[in-house]
Design a protein around this nucleic acid. Structure first.
Length: 564
RNA sequence: CGGGGCGUAGCGCAGCCUGGUAGCGCACCUGCCUUGGGCGCAGGGGGUCGGGCGUUCAAAUCGCCCCGCCCCGACCA
Protein backbone atom coordinates (compact mmCIF):
# COMPACT_ATOMS: atom_id res chain seq x y z
CA UNK A 1 0.00 0.00 0.00
CA UNK A 2 1.03 3.58 -0.66
CA UNK A 3 1.35 5.63 2.48
CA UNK A 4 0.42 8.82 0.66
CA UNK A 5 -3.03 7.36 -0.02
CA UNK A 6 -3.67 6.01 3.49
CA UNK A 7 -5.34 7.51 6.51
CA UNK A 8 -2.73 7.19 9.24
CA UNK A 9 -3.22 10.27 11.39
CA UNK A 10 -0.06 10.37 13.47
CA UNK A 11 0.39 12.99 16.15
CA UNK A 12 3.56 14.73 17.14
CA UNK A 13 2.41 15.32 20.69
CA UNK A 14 0.75 13.12 23.25
CA UNK A 15 -2.96 13.80 23.66
CA UNK A 16 -3.63 15.12 27.15
CA UNK A 17 -6.14 12.43 28.07
CA UNK A 18 -3.73 9.55 27.61
CA UNK A 19 -1.85 8.41 30.66
CA UNK A 20 -0.54 4.93 29.96
CA UNK A 21 2.02 4.23 27.25
CA UNK A 22 -0.15 1.99 25.09
CA UNK A 23 -2.94 4.56 25.09
CA UNK A 24 -0.57 7.38 24.15
CA UNK A 25 1.05 5.42 21.37
CA UNK A 26 -2.14 3.97 19.91
CA UNK A 27 -3.45 7.52 19.62
CA UNK A 28 -0.19 9.06 18.43
CA UNK A 29 0.45 6.36 15.86
CA UNK A 30 -3.03 6.82 14.42
CA UNK A 31 -4.37 3.40 15.40
CA UNK A 32 -7.38 4.53 17.38
CA UNK A 33 -9.57 7.52 18.18
CA UNK A 34 -11.94 7.83 21.07
CA UNK A 35 -15.67 8.16 20.50
CA UNK A 36 -16.86 8.16 24.14
CA UNK A 37 -15.51 7.06 27.51
CA UNK A 38 -14.38 3.49 27.01
CA UNK A 39 -15.56 3.38 23.38
CA UNK A 40 -13.02 3.62 20.57
CA UNK A 41 -12.87 3.77 16.82
CA UNK A 42 -10.34 1.30 15.52
CA UNK A 43 -8.78 2.98 12.50
CA UNK A 44 -6.93 1.33 9.64
CA UNK A 45 -3.77 0.33 11.51
CA UNK A 46 -5.59 -1.02 14.57
CA UNK A 47 -7.95 -2.99 12.38
CA UNK A 48 -5.06 -4.56 10.45
CA UNK A 49 -3.40 -5.56 13.68
CA UNK A 50 -6.62 -6.91 15.13
CA UNK A 51 -7.26 -8.95 11.98
CA UNK A 52 -3.82 -10.52 12.34
CA UNK A 53 -4.47 -11.34 15.98
CA UNK A 54 -7.88 -12.85 15.30
CA UNK A 55 -6.47 -14.89 12.42
CA UNK A 56 -3.99 -16.47 14.83
CA UNK A 57 -6.73 -17.06 17.37
CA UNK A 58 -8.91 -18.73 14.73
CA UNK A 59 -6.16 -21.01 13.52
CA UNK A 60 -5.36 -22.22 17.01
CA UNK A 61 -8.97 -22.62 18.05
CA UNK A 62 -9.81 -24.52 14.89
CA UNK A 63 -6.76 -26.69 15.55
CA UNK A 64 -8.29 -27.98 18.80
CA UNK A 65 -11.54 -28.76 17.05
CA UNK A 66 -13.43 -25.69 18.16
CA UNK A 67 -16.18 -24.42 15.87
CA UNK A 68 -16.70 -20.74 15.26
CA UNK A 69 -20.16 -19.19 15.48
CA UNK A 70 -21.57 -15.70 15.29
CA UNK A 71 -24.08 -14.88 18.02
CA UNK A 72 -26.34 -11.91 18.70
CA UNK A 73 -24.93 -9.05 20.72
CA UNK A 74 -28.50 -8.07 21.43
CA UNK A 75 -30.00 -10.50 23.92
CA UNK A 76 -33.47 -10.95 25.38
CA UNK A 77 -33.67 -10.65 29.17
CA UNK A 78 -35.13 -14.14 29.51
CA UNK A 79 -31.95 -16.17 29.08
CA UNK A 80 -30.16 -13.98 31.58
CA UNK A 81 -33.03 -14.28 34.01
CA UNK A 82 -32.86 -18.06 33.74
CA UNK A 83 -29.24 -18.18 34.77
CA UNK A 84 -29.85 -15.59 37.46
CA UNK A 85 -27.31 -13.20 36.01
CA UNK A 86 -29.89 -10.61 34.94
CA UNK A 87 -29.78 -9.54 38.61
CA UNK A 88 -26.19 -10.46 39.47
CA UNK A 89 -24.67 -8.38 36.68
CA UNK A 90 -26.32 -5.28 38.07
CA UNK A 91 -25.22 -1.99 36.57
CA UNK A 92 -22.39 -3.61 34.63
CA UNK A 93 -24.88 -4.73 32.00
CA UNK A 94 -26.08 -2.43 29.27
CA UNK A 95 -29.86 -2.72 29.26
CA UNK A 96 -32.53 -1.44 26.94
CA UNK A 97 -36.15 -1.99 26.05
CA UNK A 98 -37.52 -2.70 22.62
CA UNK A 99 -40.50 -0.79 21.22
CA UNK A 100 -42.93 -3.13 22.97
CA UNK A 101 -41.28 -2.54 26.31
CA UNK A 102 -39.54 -5.93 26.43
CA UNK A 103 -36.30 -6.03 28.40
CA UNK A 104 -33.18 -6.57 26.35
CA UNK A 105 -29.48 -6.25 27.01
CA UNK A 106 -26.17 -6.16 25.19
CA UNK A 107 -24.22 -9.35 25.78
CA UNK A 108 -21.33 -9.14 28.26
CA UNK A 109 -20.39 -12.75 27.56
CA UNK A 110 -22.30 -15.62 26.01
CA UNK A 111 -22.68 -18.52 28.44
CA UNK A 112 -26.44 -18.10 28.43
CA UNK A 113 -26.84 -17.88 24.68
CA UNK A 114 -24.50 -20.80 24.03
CA UNK A 115 -26.31 -22.90 26.62
CA UNK A 116 -29.64 -22.02 25.06
CA UNK A 117 -28.38 -23.32 21.72
CA UNK A 118 -27.05 -26.46 23.33
CA UNK A 119 -30.22 -27.31 25.21
CA UNK A 120 -32.29 -26.99 22.10
CA UNK A 121 -30.10 -29.26 20.01
CA UNK A 122 -27.82 -31.53 22.02
CA UNK A 123 -29.69 -34.76 22.84
CA UNK A 124 -27.24 -37.62 22.93
CA UNK A 125 -23.78 -38.52 24.12
CA UNK A 126 -23.07 -39.25 20.48
CA UNK A 127 -23.07 -35.49 19.82
CA UNK A 128 -20.62 -34.82 22.60
CA UNK A 129 -18.23 -33.27 23.36
CA UNK A 130 -18.54 -29.85 21.74
CA UNK A 131 -16.39 -26.73 21.76
CA UNK A 132 -18.01 -23.63 20.30
CA UNK A 133 -16.47 -20.23 20.01
CA UNK A 134 -17.05 -16.74 18.75
CA UNK A 135 -14.94 -13.66 18.17
CA UNK A 136 -17.25 -10.78 18.83
CA UNK A 137 -17.87 -7.45 20.42
CA UNK A 138 -18.94 -7.59 24.04
CA UNK A 139 -20.41 -4.84 26.12
CA UNK A 140 -19.85 -3.94 29.74
CA UNK A 141 -20.90 -0.72 31.34
CA UNK A 142 -17.69 -0.35 33.29
CA UNK A 143 -17.93 2.03 36.22
CA UNK A 144 -14.62 3.48 35.22
CA UNK A 145 -13.22 2.89 31.76
CA UNK A 146 -9.52 3.71 31.68
CA UNK A 147 -6.08 3.20 30.22
CA UNK A 148 -6.98 3.34 26.55
CA UNK A 149 -8.00 -0.09 25.29
CA UNK A 150 -7.18 -1.85 28.54
CA UNK A 151 -10.49 -1.23 30.28
CA UNK A 152 -13.28 -0.30 27.94
CA UNK A 153 -17.02 -0.65 27.64
CA UNK A 154 -17.08 -2.26 24.22
CA UNK A 155 -14.40 -4.70 23.16
CA UNK A 156 -13.66 -7.74 21.06
CA UNK A 157 -13.38 -11.02 22.80
CA UNK A 158 -12.75 -14.53 21.71
CA UNK A 159 -14.96 -16.64 23.92
CA UNK A 160 -15.27 -20.37 23.75
CA UNK A 161 -17.51 -22.80 25.57
CA UNK A 162 -17.09 -26.50 26.07
CA UNK A 163 -19.78 -29.10 26.72
CA UNK A 164 -18.74 -32.48 28.08
CA UNK A 165 -20.37 -35.57 29.52
CA UNK A 166 -18.33 -35.44 32.70
CA UNK A 167 -15.37 -33.97 34.58
CA UNK A 168 -12.79 -36.05 32.68
CA UNK A 169 -14.03 -34.61 29.43
CA UNK A 170 -13.91 -31.11 30.89
CA UNK A 171 -10.29 -31.71 31.90
CA UNK A 172 -9.50 -32.54 28.30
CA UNK A 173 -11.25 -29.43 26.94
CA UNK A 174 -9.62 -27.28 29.61
CA UNK A 175 -6.14 -28.55 28.84
CA UNK A 176 -6.69 -28.16 25.11
CA UNK A 177 -7.54 -24.55 25.71
CA UNK A 178 -4.60 -23.97 27.98
CA UNK A 179 -2.26 -25.32 25.32
CA UNK A 180 -3.99 -23.40 22.52
CA UNK A 181 -3.75 -20.20 24.54
CA UNK A 182 -0.04 -20.70 25.06
CA UNK A 183 0.42 -21.12 21.31
CA UNK A 184 -1.72 -18.07 20.56
CA UNK A 185 0.14 -15.77 22.94
CA UNK A 186 3.52 -17.10 21.87
CA UNK A 187 2.67 -16.54 18.23
CA UNK A 188 1.53 -13.01 19.11
CA UNK A 189 4.99 -12.42 20.52
CA UNK A 190 3.94 -11.86 24.11
CA UNK A 191 5.76 -12.77 27.28
CA UNK A 192 3.12 -14.06 29.68
CA UNK A 193 2.57 -16.12 32.81
CA UNK A 194 -0.23 -18.51 33.67
CA UNK A 195 -1.59 -17.96 37.15
CA UNK A 196 -4.15 -19.50 39.46
CA UNK A 197 -7.18 -17.28 39.59
CA UNK A 198 -10.38 -16.65 41.43
CA UNK A 199 -13.53 -17.68 39.56
CA UNK A 200 -15.56 -14.74 40.84
CA UNK A 201 -19.10 -14.26 39.61
CA UNK A 202 -18.53 -16.72 36.75
CA UNK A 203 -19.00 -19.58 39.14
CA UNK A 204 -17.08 -22.80 38.79
CA UNK A 205 -14.13 -24.49 40.34
CA UNK A 206 -10.78 -24.09 38.67
CA UNK A 207 -9.58 -21.15 36.69
CA UNK A 208 -6.33 -19.85 35.27
CA UNK A 209 -5.47 -16.43 33.98
CA UNK A 210 -2.92 -15.54 31.33
CA UNK A 211 -1.11 -12.40 32.37
CA UNK A 212 1.37 -10.01 30.77
CA UNK A 213 3.60 -8.16 33.14
CA UNK A 214 3.00 -4.41 32.82
CA UNK A 215 2.80 -1.34 35.00
CA UNK A 216 -0.34 -0.39 33.10
CA UNK A 217 -2.12 -3.48 34.40
CA UNK A 218 -4.64 -3.66 37.19
CA UNK A 219 -4.08 -7.13 38.57
CA UNK A 220 -1.31 -8.16 40.89
CA UNK A 221 0.39 -11.48 40.41
CA UNK A 222 2.31 -13.28 43.13
CA UNK A 223 5.08 -15.43 41.74
CA UNK A 224 7.71 -17.68 43.24
CA UNK A 225 10.87 -17.79 41.17
CA UNK A 226 11.95 -20.84 43.13
CA UNK A 227 9.27 -23.31 42.10
CA UNK A 228 7.21 -21.41 39.53
CA UNK A 229 4.12 -21.01 41.70
CA UNK A 230 2.09 -18.08 40.35
CA UNK A 231 -1.31 -16.80 41.34
CA UNK A 232 -3.48 -13.75 41.17
CA UNK A 233 -3.15 -11.79 44.39
CA UNK A 234 -6.86 -12.39 44.99
CA UNK A 235 -6.17 -16.07 45.22
CA UNK A 236 -2.50 -16.25 46.20
CA UNK A 237 -1.39 -18.07 49.31
CA UNK A 238 1.85 -17.75 51.21
CA UNK A 239 3.41 -18.25 54.59
CA UNK A 240 3.41 -15.02 56.58
CA UNK A 241 6.44 -13.70 58.38
CA UNK A 242 6.75 -14.76 62.03
CA UNK A 243 5.34 -12.39 64.68
CA UNK A 244 7.94 -9.84 65.76
CA UNK A 245 7.39 -10.58 69.45
CA UNK A 246 6.52 -13.93 71.00
CA UNK A 247 3.18 -14.16 72.76
CA UNK A 248 3.11 -13.88 76.56
CA UNK A 249 3.12 -17.32 78.18
CA UNK A 250 0.38 -18.59 80.46
CA UNK A 251 -3.32 -19.10 80.49
CA UNK A 252 -4.21 -15.48 80.99
CA UNK A 253 -7.67 -13.95 81.03
CA UNK A 254 -8.58 -10.95 78.88
CA UNK A 255 -7.94 -7.70 80.66
CA UNK A 256 -9.31 -4.34 79.71
CA UNK A 257 -7.03 -1.30 79.56
CA UNK A 258 -7.60 2.35 78.76
CA UNK A 259 -6.39 3.56 75.33
CA UNK A 260 -7.64 7.15 75.04
CA UNK A 261 -7.67 8.35 71.45
CA UNK A 262 -5.68 5.34 70.21
CA UNK A 263 -7.51 3.87 67.21
CA UNK A 264 -5.23 2.58 64.54
CA UNK A 265 -3.07 -0.50 64.71
CA UNK A 266 0.01 1.72 64.54
CA UNK A 267 -1.20 3.93 67.40
CA UNK A 268 -1.91 0.93 69.62
CA UNK A 269 1.50 -0.51 68.78
CA UNK A 270 3.20 2.73 69.81
CA UNK A 271 0.99 3.05 72.90
CA UNK A 272 1.61 -0.50 74.18
CA UNK A 273 5.18 -0.81 72.98
CA UNK A 274 4.24 -4.12 71.32
CA UNK A 275 4.58 -4.71 67.57
CA UNK A 276 1.62 -4.74 65.20
CA UNK A 277 2.01 -8.50 64.90
CA UNK A 278 0.81 -8.82 68.50
CA UNK A 279 -2.55 -7.32 67.63
CA UNK A 280 -5.70 -8.63 66.05
CA UNK A 281 -7.22 -6.35 63.46
CA UNK A 282 -11.02 -6.41 63.56
CA UNK A 283 -12.82 -5.59 60.33
CA UNK A 284 -16.57 -5.48 60.07
CA UNK A 285 -17.81 -6.42 56.63
CA UNK A 286 -21.25 -6.57 55.10
CA UNK A 287 -21.57 -9.82 53.16
CA UNK A 288 -24.71 -9.67 51.00
CA UNK A 289 -26.07 -7.30 53.63
CA UNK A 290 -25.22 -9.40 56.70
CA UNK A 291 -22.50 -8.20 59.06
CA UNK A 292 -19.52 -10.46 59.64
CA UNK A 293 -16.50 -9.78 61.85
CA UNK A 294 -13.25 -10.70 60.12
CA UNK A 295 -9.99 -10.88 62.07
CA UNK A 296 -6.48 -10.72 60.70
CA UNK A 297 -3.11 -10.14 62.31
CA UNK A 298 -2.43 -6.45 62.97
CA UNK A 299 0.07 -6.04 60.16
CA UNK A 300 -1.96 -8.04 57.62
CA UNK A 301 -4.52 -6.96 55.04
CA UNK A 302 -7.86 -8.64 54.57
CA UNK A 303 -8.40 -10.02 51.07
CA UNK A 304 -11.96 -9.15 50.13
CA UNK A 305 -12.00 -11.89 47.52
CA UNK A 306 -10.97 -14.54 50.02
CA UNK A 307 -13.42 -13.12 52.52
CA UNK A 308 -16.26 -13.29 49.98
CA UNK A 309 -15.42 -16.84 49.07
CA UNK A 310 -15.10 -17.85 52.78
CA UNK A 311 -18.56 -16.58 53.65
CA UNK A 312 -20.06 -17.49 50.29
CA UNK A 313 -21.15 -13.95 49.51
CA UNK A 314 -21.50 -12.24 46.17
CA UNK A 315 -21.40 -8.64 47.30
CA UNK A 316 -18.97 -7.57 49.98
CA UNK A 317 -18.25 -4.15 51.42
CA UNK A 318 -16.91 -2.61 54.62
CA UNK A 319 -19.73 -1.94 57.08
CA UNK A 320 -20.89 1.64 57.50
CA UNK A 321 -19.98 3.43 60.76
CA UNK A 322 -23.65 3.44 61.88
CA UNK A 323 -23.98 -0.30 61.28
CA UNK A 324 -20.86 -0.90 63.33
CA UNK A 325 -22.00 1.26 66.21
CA UNK A 326 -25.38 -0.42 66.29
CA UNK A 327 -23.95 -3.93 66.26
CA UNK A 328 -20.94 -3.48 68.51
CA UNK A 329 -21.77 -0.50 70.68
CA UNK A 330 -18.41 0.96 69.76
CA UNK A 331 -16.70 2.52 66.79
CA UNK A 332 -14.04 1.20 64.43
CA UNK A 333 -10.75 1.51 66.27
CA UNK A 334 -11.99 -0.16 69.44
CA UNK A 335 -13.54 -3.32 68.02
CA UNK A 336 -12.75 -6.89 68.92
CA UNK A 337 -14.12 -10.44 68.92
CA UNK A 338 -14.56 -11.04 72.65
CA UNK A 339 -18.20 -11.20 73.71
CA UNK A 340 -19.51 -11.02 70.15
CA UNK A 341 -22.39 -13.46 69.89
CA UNK A 342 -24.91 -12.31 67.33
CA UNK A 343 -22.41 -11.85 64.55
CA UNK A 344 -20.43 -14.46 62.67
CA UNK A 345 -16.74 -14.25 63.55
CA UNK A 346 -14.13 -15.54 61.13
CA UNK A 347 -10.38 -15.35 61.58
CA UNK A 348 -7.35 -15.69 59.38
CA UNK A 349 -5.21 -18.79 59.73
CA UNK A 350 -2.29 -16.66 60.95
CA UNK A 351 -4.19 -16.19 64.21
CA UNK A 352 -4.61 -19.92 64.79
CA UNK A 353 -2.43 -21.02 67.69
CA UNK A 354 -1.64 -17.49 68.82
CA UNK A 355 -2.40 -16.44 72.38
CA UNK A 356 -2.65 -13.46 74.67
CA UNK A 357 -2.96 -10.93 71.90
CA UNK A 358 -4.34 -7.41 71.87
CA UNK A 359 -7.77 -6.59 70.46
CA UNK A 360 -10.41 -3.90 70.77
CA UNK A 361 -12.78 -4.14 73.75
CA UNK A 362 -15.97 -3.07 71.91
CA UNK A 363 -15.95 -0.06 74.17
CA UNK A 364 -14.61 3.20 72.82
CA UNK A 365 -11.10 4.02 74.02
CA UNK A 366 -10.56 0.57 75.55
CA UNK A 367 -8.67 -2.47 74.38
CA UNK A 368 -8.11 -5.94 75.77
CA UNK A 369 -4.84 -7.73 76.31
CA UNK A 370 -4.45 -11.49 76.71
CA UNK A 371 -7.03 -12.40 74.09
CA UNK A 372 -6.61 -15.97 72.87
CA UNK A 373 -8.44 -17.22 69.76
CA UNK A 374 -10.26 -20.47 70.46
CA UNK A 375 -10.50 -19.74 74.18
CA UNK A 376 -11.80 -16.23 74.63
CA UNK A 377 -13.82 -16.46 71.43
CA UNK A 378 -14.45 -19.22 68.93
CA UNK A 379 -13.88 -18.08 65.36
CA UNK A 380 -14.11 -20.09 62.17
CA UNK A 381 -10.67 -20.12 60.59
CA UNK A 382 -10.11 -19.38 56.91
CA UNK A 383 -7.30 -18.11 54.74
CA UNK A 384 -8.31 -14.45 54.62
CA UNK A 385 -5.02 -12.67 54.36
CA UNK A 386 -3.63 -10.89 51.35
CA UNK A 387 -0.15 -12.12 50.52
CA UNK A 388 2.66 -9.55 50.59
CA UNK A 389 6.05 -9.44 48.92
CA UNK A 390 8.56 -11.46 50.86
CA UNK A 391 6.11 -14.04 52.21
CA UNK A 392 7.52 -17.53 51.97
CA UNK A 393 6.21 -19.70 49.17
CA UNK A 394 4.03 -22.49 50.57
CA UNK A 395 5.49 -24.96 48.11
CA UNK A 396 9.19 -24.30 48.34
CA UNK A 397 9.77 -21.72 51.06
CA UNK A 398 11.48 -19.13 48.88
CA UNK A 399 10.28 -15.53 49.16
CA UNK A 400 7.56 -14.60 46.66
CA UNK A 401 7.54 -11.57 44.36
CA UNK A 402 4.63 -9.43 43.31
CA UNK A 403 4.07 -7.39 40.16
CA UNK A 404 1.34 -5.72 38.12
CA UNK A 405 -0.15 -7.43 35.10
CA UNK A 406 -2.67 -7.14 32.32
CA UNK A 407 -5.09 -10.07 32.02
CA UNK A 408 -5.19 -11.23 28.40
CA UNK A 409 -6.93 -14.57 28.82
CA UNK A 410 -8.92 -16.49 31.37
CA UNK A 411 -10.01 -20.10 31.32
CA UNK A 412 -12.69 -21.50 33.66
CA UNK A 413 -14.01 -24.82 34.62
CA UNK A 414 -17.58 -23.66 34.92
CA UNK A 415 -19.14 -26.85 36.17
CA UNK A 416 -22.89 -27.14 36.03
CA UNK A 417 -23.93 -23.59 36.80
CA UNK A 418 -25.44 -22.81 33.41
CA UNK A 419 -26.30 -26.28 32.18
CA UNK A 420 -28.25 -26.88 35.39
CA UNK A 421 -30.01 -23.53 35.74
CA UNK A 422 -30.95 -23.50 32.08
CA UNK A 423 -31.99 -27.11 31.83
CA UNK A 424 -29.45 -28.65 29.44
CA UNK A 425 -29.75 -32.45 29.39
CA UNK A 426 -28.39 -35.18 27.17
CA UNK A 427 -28.81 -38.92 27.26
CA UNK A 428 -25.77 -41.04 28.11
CA UNK A 429 -24.85 -44.51 26.88
CA UNK A 430 -26.95 -46.08 29.60
CA UNK A 431 -30.03 -44.18 28.47
CA UNK A 432 -30.03 -41.86 31.48
CA UNK A 433 -30.41 -38.09 31.23
CA UNK A 434 -27.37 -36.27 32.51
CA UNK A 435 -26.45 -32.61 32.81
CA UNK A 436 -23.35 -31.78 30.77
CA UNK A 437 -20.45 -30.01 32.41
CA UNK A 438 -19.19 -26.77 30.90
CA UNK A 439 -16.10 -24.68 30.58
CA UNK A 440 -15.64 -21.16 29.31
CA UNK A 441 -12.52 -19.60 27.92
CA UNK A 442 -11.92 -15.95 27.02
CA UNK A 443 -9.27 -13.89 25.27
CA UNK A 444 -9.26 -10.09 25.16
CA UNK A 445 -8.24 -9.23 21.61
CA UNK A 446 -7.47 -5.53 22.14
CA UNK A 447 -5.57 -6.41 25.27
CA UNK A 448 -3.20 -8.50 23.19
CA UNK A 449 -2.49 -5.43 21.08
CA UNK A 450 -2.27 -3.07 24.06
CA UNK A 451 -0.04 -5.30 26.09
CA UNK A 452 2.26 -5.85 23.10
CA UNK A 453 2.52 -2.09 22.73
CA UNK A 454 3.26 -1.74 26.44
CA UNK A 455 5.78 -4.56 26.41
CA UNK A 456 7.89 -3.31 23.53
CA UNK A 457 7.50 0.47 23.47
CA UNK A 458 10.53 2.74 23.47
CA UNK A 459 11.07 6.48 23.22
CA UNK A 460 10.40 6.44 19.48
CA UNK A 461 7.10 4.60 19.61
CA UNK A 462 5.87 1.07 19.36
CA UNK A 463 7.80 -1.97 18.30
CA UNK A 464 5.23 -4.64 17.60
CA UNK A 465 5.97 -8.32 17.22
CA UNK A 466 6.00 -9.18 13.47
CA UNK A 467 2.98 -11.48 13.72
CA UNK A 468 0.65 -8.73 14.87
CA UNK A 469 2.20 -5.56 13.43
CA UNK A 470 -0.06 -3.92 10.83
CA UNK A 471 2.84 -4.01 8.38
CA UNK A 472 5.95 -6.16 8.40
CA UNK A 473 8.17 -3.73 6.53
CA UNK A 474 8.09 -0.09 5.46
CA UNK A 475 10.00 0.77 2.30
CA UNK A 476 11.22 4.35 2.50
CA UNK A 477 12.86 6.29 -0.32
CA UNK A 478 14.86 9.10 1.27
CA UNK A 479 14.00 11.54 -1.49
CA UNK A 480 11.04 10.88 -3.74
CA UNK A 481 12.26 13.51 -6.20
CA UNK A 482 15.30 11.36 -6.91
CA UNK A 483 14.06 9.16 -9.72
CA UNK A 484 16.25 6.10 -9.19
CA UNK A 485 15.47 5.97 -5.47
CA UNK A 486 11.79 6.12 -6.14
CA UNK A 487 11.94 3.46 -8.85
CA UNK A 488 14.06 1.12 -6.80
CA UNK A 489 11.83 1.58 -3.74
CA UNK A 490 8.86 0.68 -5.81
CA UNK A 491 10.59 -2.41 -7.14
CA UNK A 492 11.60 -3.56 -3.67
CA UNK A 493 8.10 -2.92 -2.42
CA UNK A 494 6.62 -5.02 -5.23
CA UNK A 495 9.15 -7.77 -4.65
CA UNK A 496 8.26 -7.87 -0.94
CA UNK A 497 4.60 -8.15 -1.76
CA UNK A 498 5.24 -10.86 -4.33
CA UNK A 499 7.16 -12.76 -1.65
CA UNK A 500 4.20 -12.55 0.72
CA UNK A 501 5.66 -9.91 2.98
CA UNK A 502 3.25 -7.32 4.28
CA UNK A 503 4.85 -4.18 2.94
CA UNK A 504 4.02 -0.49 3.12
CA UNK A 505 5.54 1.93 0.63
CA UNK A 506 6.19 5.35 2.15
CA UNK A 507 5.88 7.40 -1.04
CA UNK A 508 4.96 10.60 0.78
CA UNK A 509 6.61 13.84 -0.23
CA UNK A 510 8.05 14.38 3.22
CA UNK A 511 11.49 14.97 4.56
CA UNK A 512 13.27 11.76 5.52
CA UNK A 513 13.12 12.68 9.21
CA UNK A 514 9.36 12.78 9.14
CA UNK A 515 9.13 9.41 7.41
CA UNK A 516 11.61 7.76 9.78
CA UNK A 517 9.78 9.13 12.81
CA UNK A 518 6.43 7.89 11.55
CA UNK A 519 7.79 4.45 10.67
CA UNK A 520 9.25 4.15 14.15
CA UNK A 521 6.02 5.34 15.72
CA UNK A 522 3.69 2.84 14.04
CA UNK A 523 6.00 0.01 15.00
CA UNK A 524 6.63 -1.94 11.80
CA UNK A 525 9.39 -4.43 12.64
CA UNK A 526 11.54 -3.57 9.59
CA UNK A 527 12.34 -0.56 7.46
CA UNK A 528 14.12 -0.60 4.13
CA UNK A 529 15.74 2.76 3.48
CA UNK A 530 16.56 3.49 -0.13
CA UNK A 531 19.03 6.37 -0.26
CA UNK A 532 22.55 7.33 -1.09
CA UNK A 533 23.93 3.79 -0.93
CA UNK A 534 21.86 2.97 -3.98
CA UNK A 535 24.90 4.01 -6.01
CA UNK A 536 26.71 0.94 -4.65
CA UNK A 537 23.65 -1.21 -5.30
CA UNK A 538 22.75 -1.31 -1.61
CA UNK A 539 19.94 -0.33 0.68
CA UNK A 540 19.70 -0.24 4.45
CA UNK A 541 17.53 -2.68 6.32
CA UNK A 542 16.77 -1.42 9.81
CA UNK A 543 15.46 -3.49 12.69
CA UNK A 544 12.89 -1.42 14.55
CA UNK A 545 13.51 -2.98 17.93
CA UNK A 546 17.29 -3.12 18.00
CA UNK A 547 17.79 -0.09 15.71
CA UNK A 548 20.48 -2.13 14.00
CA UNK A 549 21.01 -1.19 10.38
CA UNK A 550 22.39 -3.61 7.81
CA UNK A 551 23.54 -2.73 4.31
CA UNK A 552 22.01 -5.26 1.99
CA UNK A 553 22.48 -5.69 -1.76
CA UNK A 554 19.29 -4.87 -3.59
CA UNK A 555 18.82 -8.35 -4.99
CA UNK A 556 19.13 -9.86 -1.49
CA UNK A 557 16.60 -7.68 0.33
CA UNK A 558 13.66 -10.04 0.09
CA UNK A 559 15.73 -13.04 1.07
CA UNK A 560 17.14 -11.11 4.00
CA UNK A 561 13.68 -10.12 5.25
CA UNK A 562 12.24 -13.56 4.64
CA UNK A 563 14.96 -15.03 6.80
CA UNK A 564 13.95 -12.90 9.79
C1' C B 1 -20.85 6.29 43.34
C1' G B 2 -16.91 9.27 46.76
C1' G B 3 -12.38 12.53 46.04
C1' G B 4 -9.44 15.55 42.57
C1' G B 5 -8.51 17.84 37.80
C1' C B 6 -9.69 19.51 33.01
C1' G B 7 -13.01 21.48 28.83
C1' U B 8 -10.39 28.09 24.55
C1' A B 9 -8.67 26.26 16.27
C1' G B 10 -7.27 19.28 14.33
C1' C B 11 -3.28 18.47 18.59
C1' G B 12 -0.55 20.71 22.85
C1' C B 13 -1.38 25.00 25.69
C1' A B 14 -1.64 30.59 27.44
C1' G B 15 -5.48 34.16 28.59
C1' C B 16 -9.69 33.62 33.61
C1' C B 17 -7.36 35.47 39.74
C1' U B 18 -8.09 41.61 38.65
C1' G B 19 -14.75 41.52 33.14
C1' G B 20 -13.58 45.61 27.86
C1' U B 21 -10.00 43.78 20.35
C1' A B 22 -9.31 35.69 21.52
C1' G B 23 -3.59 34.51 21.45
C1' C B 24 1.08 31.09 21.03
C1' G B 25 3.55 26.49 19.18
C1' C B 26 2.64 22.36 16.05
C1' A B 27 -0.59 20.71 12.19
C1' C B 28 -3.36 22.58 7.64
C1' C B 29 -3.52 25.63 2.64
C1' U B 30 -0.44 28.65 -1.26
C1' G B 31 4.40 29.89 -3.11
C1' C B 32 9.63 29.50 -2.85
C1' C B 33 13.44 26.55 -0.91
C1' U B 34 15.13 21.93 0.93
C1' U B 35 15.75 16.30 1.04
C1' G B 36 19.58 10.78 5.89
C1' G B 37 15.85 11.83 11.90
C1' G B 38 9.42 15.94 12.93
C1' C B 39 14.22 21.67 7.68
C1' G B 40 13.88 27.02 6.38
C1' C B 41 11.50 31.71 4.45
C1' A B 42 7.05 34.43 3.05
C1' G B 43 1.86 34.67 2.86
C1' G B 44 -3.01 32.58 4.35
C1' G B 45 -7.42 29.99 6.32
C1' G B 46 -9.66 28.08 10.56
C1' G B 47 -12.87 29.56 17.17
C1' U B 48 -21.10 28.78 18.98
C1' C B 49 -14.11 29.90 24.33
C1' G B 50 -18.44 22.30 26.36
C1' G B 51 -24.04 23.81 27.04
C1' G B 52 -27.92 26.66 29.57
C1' C B 53 -29.50 30.35 32.85
C1' G B 54 -28.10 34.54 35.62
C1' U B 55 -25.12 39.16 37.28
C1' U B 56 -23.30 43.41 34.35
C1' C B 57 -23.39 48.89 29.92
C1' A B 58 -20.12 44.72 28.70
C1' A B 59 -18.69 37.63 30.28
C1' A B 60 -13.68 32.91 27.74
C1' U B 61 -13.12 35.65 32.52
C1' C B 62 -17.93 36.36 38.02
C1' G B 63 -22.36 33.06 40.09
C1' C B 64 -25.72 28.81 39.69
C1' C B 65 -27.19 24.38 37.08
C1' C B 66 -26.15 20.68 33.50
C1' C B 67 -23.00 17.78 30.09
C1' G B 68 -18.42 15.54 28.65
C1' C B 69 -13.44 13.69 29.47
C1' C B 70 -9.12 12.24 32.55
C1' C B 71 -6.82 10.65 37.26
C1' C B 72 -7.19 8.29 42.47
C1' G B 73 -10.56 5.17 45.19
C1' A B 74 -14.81 1.85 45.10
C1' C B 75 -15.95 -1.66 41.23
C1' C B 76 -13.99 -5.08 37.57
C1' A B 77 -17.43 -12.58 33.80
Amino acid sequence: MYWSKLFIPTLRENPAEAEVVSHQLLLRAGYIRQLAAGVYNYLFLAQRSILKITAIVREEMDAIGAQEMLLPALNPAEVWQESGRWTIMGDNMFRLKDRFGRDMCLGMTHEEVMTSIARGELRSYKQMPQIWYQIQTKFRDEPRPKSGLLRVRQFIMKDSYSFDMGPEGLDVAYNKHRDAYCRIFERCGLQFVIVEADSGAMGGSKSNEFMVRSEAGEDFVVECKGCGYAANLEKAVGKPSAPLASDPEGDLAPEEFHTPGQKTIAEIAAFTGLPETSQMKSLVMAADGTLVLALVRGDHQLSETKFASAVGAVEVRPAHPEEIRQAFGADAGSLGPVGVSKIRVIADLALQGRKNMIAGANKNDYHLRNVTPGEDFKPEFFDLRQVVTGDACLQCGKPVEMYKTVEIGHIFKLGYKYSKSMGLHVTNEGGEEITPIMGSYGIGVERILSSAVELYADKDGMSLPPAIAPFFVVVTPVNIKAGPQMEMSQKIYQACKAAGLDALFDDRDERPGVKFKDADLIGAPWRVTVGKKLAQGKVEVVNRRTKQSTDVAIEDVVTFLKGQ
